[in-house]
Design a protein around this nucleic acid. Structure first.
Length: 557
RNA sequence: UGUCCGAUGGUGUAAUGGUAGCACUUGUGAUUUUGGUUCAUACAGCCAAGGUUCGAAUCCUUGUCGGACAACCA
């Protein structure tokens, strides 16, 4: 099960060492989302890391919701997060909530008060902030810092009993107001929040802060390696300080930080993603343009492609910006192997095959996937009138244009050679249809006389094809890094107005009974996925990604 | 001008004192009933300066550049 990789990332090296020296017999990691939004591709990196460690080292991984702030968190998010983790293909060993530990965490807080290491501060947030000053000068001690243990105990009890208002007081740890690390300047441990909590109901009206609750939760669960992103690096001394207060076993978690994922042409902060959703810039958290896991899923991404992506980008401590093209590479790689090919014309141009018998329809054999023989074949209807892609015909074509042109011959995929004889236009000069002749001997796409035809184009039979709504997605932002802004700018200034184009395409009849989530390659156009709102008679396809297109490079030169 | 962290081709990521490799991207060519796939091939990198060493991407020093930190968010 343990596949040997040639190289280990720095976290794997730490773990390998911990196992070899006997510091740990088995590792336990955790993925600790706050249920205040949907998971995105950056979380997928973290999930793949934490659960990947479990698989590599035969350890365990808990899913733990960091539900310490009922004013921001919702059950909908809990459910979506569980779904996303499963969809990615991971199984957690335990499902926990930080709220499971509220009683224990509270008792430890009381213990700290008794030891003179915590106190109730009745100042305003502004006063507390001012006294912390800034990192270059020492802080100022709160006037409440040295009140008696008895008084602290009494008032903290009153806070717990709901006798004080939100914002009127907090419990602070007595650490070091002179520390150059701002997080050590008597951090807040508890604040009053009089909100219903989804799991503990109205039992509590004081809630622990992240810095206090997180490490203690890790400790309770026996987490060996607590992996988080770089911005928590400055918190580590405080994480250790809180652990110092309760650690009697000597076995404590070690916090390790890595660089979060950034992907070009998108944003990754939950705050911004929430804003996109609530202000309706997108249709929801699972809008296929969103970098959320549910958005990528609806877009047509597979769990394997995302896991391969996460594996390839690696884990390190330096800031990074991954080209969205790398993500696209992995979904193309995956879908190339598994998506069946079908024909769909996105921008139809009518073609009449003048020498084909009126009223005749024949069924031609078409391979489903040249990369996978077991995918088999299907029958595709062909008749006198078909549609081809408008861009596959050019009246004044350059020499390198291999597709259809006046007097030129082209192969219809899986069908016949056709030659264009006549271009029909309306009074405005727009091409409305083409008249072609076909070579009956070229059935299947090869001529017995051995003559070569360079171009092959896709088509659909006009009589039996069906209309389908097709949503062409593009990147959500026009700027590589929408967070890199000049003054007076907002990331919303760089929303791509063309990130979604909805068209009606003509698709082959075999697609009439597809199901949501089914994935296809529309030959020569890209990979498409059946949307969750698709229904028989009203098909909806989402474009996952285009095929690589070396012609467009030639054409634009 | 506080503390902490980081710096390897265009983008990511390896090397753990001993030949700077891999993937993506890009260029060229071959194959091809998808201008797809596949195959071959090429371009391109150690932030800078000192020091230690037979030997430095790696260790040390200094500098430069980038990032994080001053919510009763996580």
């Amino acid at each position: 099960m343990e596949e040997k990789k040639e190289t280990l990332n720095f976290i794997e090296q730490i773990i390998t060492n911990d196992l070899e020296t006997g510091k740990h017999k088995q590792i336990i990691t955790r993925f600790p989302p706050e249920p205040n939004g949907y998971l995105h591709i950056g979380h997928a990196k973290s999930i793949c890391l934490n659960f990947g460690l479990k698989e590599t080292f035969n350890g365990k991984t808990n899913l733990r919701f960091d539900d310490t702030n009922p004013s921001k968190e919702e059950v909908e998010y809990v459910n979506s997060i569980i779904d996303d983790v499963h969809w990615l293909g991971f199984e957690y060993d335990n499902l926990f909530y930080a709220s499971d530990y509220f009683q224990q965490i509270y008792e430890w807080a009381v213990m700290l008060i008794r030891e003179g290491k915590a106190y109730v501060d009745e100042q305003t947030p502004e006063q507390i902030s001012e006294q912390r000053t800034n990192p270059t000068v020492p802080g100022i001690e709160s006037p409440f810092r040295n009140r008696s243990v008895e008084e602290n105990l009494r008032i903290f009890q009153e806070m717990k009993d709901g006798k004080h208002d939100e914002g009127s007081m907090v419990l602070r740890a007595k650490v070091d107001m002179n520390s150059p690390n701002m997080h050590m300047r008597d951090p807040i441990m508890y604040r009053i929040i009089k909100k219903h909590h989804d799991r503990t109901g109205d039992k509590w009206c004081i809630y622990p802060m992240y810095d206090y609750a997180h490490g203690q939760s890790d400790y309770i669960e026996g987490i060996t390696h607590s992996i988080c992103t770089l911005e928590f690096e400055v918190h580590r001394p405080l994480y250790e300080w809180f652990l110092d207060q309760i650690d009697t076993t000597g076995k404590r978690p070690r916090q390790i930080e890595f660089a979060r994922l950034n992907v070009s042409y998108t944003v990754m902060s939950k705050r911004k993603l929430l804003e996109l959703v609530t202000n309706k810039y997108v249709s929801g958290w699972d809008d296929p343009r969103m970098p959320t896991i549910s958005g990528l899923r609806r877009r047509g991404y597979t769990p394997e492609s995302i896991r391969n992506f996460a594996e390839r980008i690696g884990v390190a401590k330096r800031e990074n910006m991954i080209d969205v093209g790398l993500l696209e590479f992995f979904i193309r790689e995956d879908l190339n192997k598994r998506a069946n090919r079908v024909m769909a014309v996105l921008d139809p141009l009518k073609v009449v095959i003048t020498n084909y018998p009126d009223g005749q329809t024949e069924q031609l054999d078409s391979g489903n996937n040249p990369e996978d023989e077991t995918a088999g074949t299907r029958k595709v209807n062909f008749s006198k009138e078909i549609f081809i892609e408008r861009e596959d015909f050019m009246e004044d074509a350059p020499a390198k244009f291999f597709r259809l042109k006046p007097g030129g011959e082209v192969r219809l995929r899986n069908a016949y050679f056709v030659k264009c004889n006549e271009v029909i236009k309306d009074k405005n000069g727009n091409i409305t249809e083409l008249h072609c002749t076909y070579d009956p001997d070229s059935k299947g796409g090869q001529s017995p006389d051995g003559r070569k035809v360079k171009g092959t184009i896709h088509w659909v039979d006009s009589k039996t094809c069906i209309d389908a709504e097709v949503r062409l997605y593009d990147r959500l932002f026009t700027k590589e890094n929408p967070d890199d802004l000049a003054e007076n700018e907002t990331y919303l200034d760089y929303l791509n107005p063309d990130s979604l184009k909805t068209i009606t395409a003509k698709v082959e009849k075999s697609l009439e009974s597809v199901n949501p989530g089914d994935k296809f390659q529309f030959e020569r156009k890209g990979y498409f996925c059946v949307d969750k709102n698709s229904a028989p008679g009203k098909l909806v396809f989402n474009r996952t990604v285009t095929l690589k297109d070396s012609w467009s490079k030639i054409a634009t030169n």
